[in-house]
Design a protein around this nucleic acid. Structure first.
Length: 152
DNA sequence: GCCAACGTTGGC
DNA sequence: GCCAACGTTGGC
């Protein structure tokens, strides 16, 4: 069982959208490192923080569950899609996705600002300089600390 | 294989 | 809108 953080721009897909549909294919990831996490390490039942990025108040806004193993991301083969990749061969797909399932929406988001104030989280991937990965693992100790922040 | 140019991410 | 940081591309 692993923990993850997954970013989304709320004007594209928000925690409210996930709550409405319950389960959603997390498509559009076009970074090899993130792809490898999705393809090789994510597993059914893993938990993930839903993070809102590129918005007025970036931060963790909900919790979700990985709903199954990875499979090819169909949007890579749709020319009209914003994440279309002409170089990806359907017989040997480059890009993968997992489906995520809504678990909860936080009553009070844990903002990026708040996370930065927390000494125990100083070495978390999210807070490292130049971090741009949209999907990455969260260490258990960081997960637990954030869950404590959520509970208080 | 090097590296400059360019594109993207994402906070501010 | 700005800009730092990083990934990708392509000429050589």
């Amino acid at each position: 069982m692993q923990y993850w953080l997954m970013k989304s721009e709320p004007n594209e897909f928000s925690i409210d959208d996930l709550q409405r549909v319950t389960v959603e294919p997390w498509d559009g990831v076009r970074n090899y490192q993130a792809r490898n996490f999705i393809r090789d390490q994510m597993a059914l039942g893993d938990r993930a923080f839903f993070y809102h990025s590129s918005c007025q108040t970036p931060g963790i806004v909900g919790i979700m569950e990985i709903a199954g193993a990875a499979y090819p991301d169909p949007t890579a083969f749709m020319p009209q899609n914003a994440h279309y990749d002409a170089k990806s061969d359907p017989r040997n797909p480059t890009w993968m996705l997992v489906e995520v399932k809504f678990v909860s929406k936080l009553k009070h988001p844990v903002t990026l600002q708040r996370l930065k104030q927390e000494p125990a989280l100083a070495d978390m991937q999210l807070l490292k300089r130049g971090n741009r990965l949209s999907v990455f693992p969260v260490e258990a100790r960081h997960w637990r600390r954030i869950m404590q922040l959520i509970a208080t």
